[in-house]
Design a protein around this nucleic acid. Structure first.
Length: 490
DNA sequence: TTTTGGGG
């Protein structure tokens, strides 16, 4: 075996390969589309791509590569890379040619970078021995030169399934062109969440009725600000605007290198994904029909996202949440109207812990949920029977769950700030103040957008927030937020 | 030995 003459391979231009129906062929191509390995309904994994060369530039040749293990799949790093296949079977489907690769039937591949001047050492290959003769280097060099003058773009174009994050809903499957901001890989728990972004704002989600009914205490758990959130130090690297959508990659395989997923910073085309609501927030999900394709940063779709976001950043009007009325209205009145609005992500990631902000938000919930419990006795008087306490002995302690397209956070309405907020209703023993309770309840219902018919739909309101800490030694870890300088007249 | 998926 060792001294056998190396096999001479004949490489077929793609235009000729597509004529070789039912034959096995060898060819080189430039990767124009690549979708990551995913399980099939059968026993194998499947990875798909489109390859092109100077003889077959458009629409290119689809390649389906089946293998029993994800480790045997080509892992294309970037579109524009050069791939070589041996012994792939030419087929036809729906009048279009396609090549079927399968290592069990003798197929093999090598992958090389697509940049001109790069070396001829494959960065990934299906087998440890491979040929790379002068004639191979010649073909690779020619392909690289050709590809450098033929930017890969057209294939990442739009289609009728394409959506932006601002348009996602739970009713249909869709495609998304987006940037991976963070891959939270809890391998020990076999749970991975990918956080994606396209610079637009998701619409306010309606609470999932299933979740509501299965939750005994919606006030606490449903409005957790932590569940789907990312650590603040990670969030600090995120753009200031736009929804970051969690994506649960159900069924996507892992290999020795970890999950076969894109890395933070990559642009991807998520194909045929679904969406659901968890804890009142949208969350993307893959299913067996979904695919994750990589995108080149130079792709038109990527450029469009980045250009639109740049424009958004520089415009006061476009910085506002996409779904809030324009011009903005607010049933809450704040001072500091000259201050620019901050997103909740900016609030959460601000480097200084004591700071003041003005935000455009929706109030999703209060805690306690019952207005009757909004006031508590002052410290030290808690042990006394409440009925004997006077009005001045009480203080407002209410936690608001605030939301905007970028984040959710909890802010406290406390003490004098709360008295100013509720305008005309000082803190009191609310169990002895029926009129006050009724008035407060009406205000809170308006704030929460409670309606007799249908789910609550909180209006957009401006409010001022200040951050503070509980422990001077650990300001970042004990950061809290309070509403201040905000009034709810009427 | 010859699926699976092949855009919905």
């Amino acid at each position: 075996m060792a001294n056998r003459e190396p096999e001479k391979y004949n490489y077929t231009p793609l235009a000729d390969a597509v004529m070789c129906l039912e034959q096995k062929v060898n060819f080189y191509g430039v990767v124009a589309e690549y979708e990551q390995p995913k399980p099939t309904r059968g026993r194998d994994y499947l990875c798909t791509m489109t390859v092109i060369d100077m003889s077959y530039n458009s629409p290119g040749l689809r390649v389906l590569y089946f293998a029993p293990d994800v480790d045997m799949m080509p892992r294309v790093k970037d579109l524009g890379d050069v791939i070589r296949f041996h012994r792939v079977q030419m087929k036809s489907h729906a009048d279009a040619p396609q090549a079927i690769g399968n290592p069990k039937k003798g197929s093999s591949f090598v992958l090389l970078r697509g940049c001109e001047g790069d070396d001829y050492v494959p960065y990934h290959k299906s087998h440890s021995n491979f040929t790379m003769e002068a004639s191979d280097r010649n073909i690779v060099g020619l392909l690289r030169m050709w590809a450098s003058s033929h930017p890969i773009d057209t294939l990442a174009g739009t289609n009728k399934y394409m959506k932006q994050i601002k348009d996602v809903n739970v009713d249909s499957y869709f495609d998304l062109c987006c940037k991976i901001l963070f891959v939270n890989d809890q391998s020990a728990e076999h749970s991975v969440i990918i956080y994606v972004w396209d610079g637009t704002d998701a619409s306010p989600a309606c609470l999932n009725p299933l979740e509501q009914s299965e939750n005994g205490d919606p006030g606490q758990d449903l409005w957790s600000s932590k569940e789907l959130a990312v650590p603040v130090d990670v969030m600090r690297g995120f753009p200031a605007l736009g929804t970051v959508l969690p994506l649960v990659p159900f069924g996507m395989p892992e290999d020795d290198f970890g999950p076969q997923l894109p890395l933070a910073g990559d642009w991807v085309k998520l194909r045929n994904i679904g969406c659901r609501v968890r804890k009142g927030l949208y969350e993307g999900v893959t299913y067996h029909g979904s695919k994750i394709g990589i995108l080149s940063p130079s792709a038109q779709a990527v450029q469009n996202c980045e250009r639109a976001y740049e424009e958004r950043l520089t415009s006061e009007a476009l910085r506002l949440p996409h779904w809030c009325p324009k011009p903005p209205q607010s049933m809450l009145v704040t001072g500091y109207d000259h201050c620019k609005l901050s997103t909740l992500r900016e609030v959460l990631t601000y480097p200084q812990v004591t700071y003041k902000f003005r935000c455009m938000v929706r109030v999703m919930a209060t805690w306690p949920s019952d207005v009757l419990d909004f006031c508590v006795p002052h410290d030290g008087s808690a042990a006394q029977p409440k009925d004997h306490l006077e009005q001045g002995d009480f203080v407002y302690v209410v936690r608001l769950t605030l939301e905007d397209p970028t984040a959710r956070l909890h802010a406290f309405l406390y003490g004098q700030d709360a008295v100013e907020f509720f305008v005309g209703y000082p803190a009191a023993n609310l169990r002895r103040q029926g009129d006050t309770v009724g008035a407060l309840k009406r205000k809170v219902d308006r704030l929460l957008g409670v309606s007799e018919h249908g789910p609550p739909n909180p209006p957009w309101v401006t409010c001022c927030l200040k951050s503070y800490y509980l422990d001077k030694e650990h300001p970042q870890e004990t950061r809290r937020y309070r509403v201040f300088g905000t009034r709810f007249p009427g």
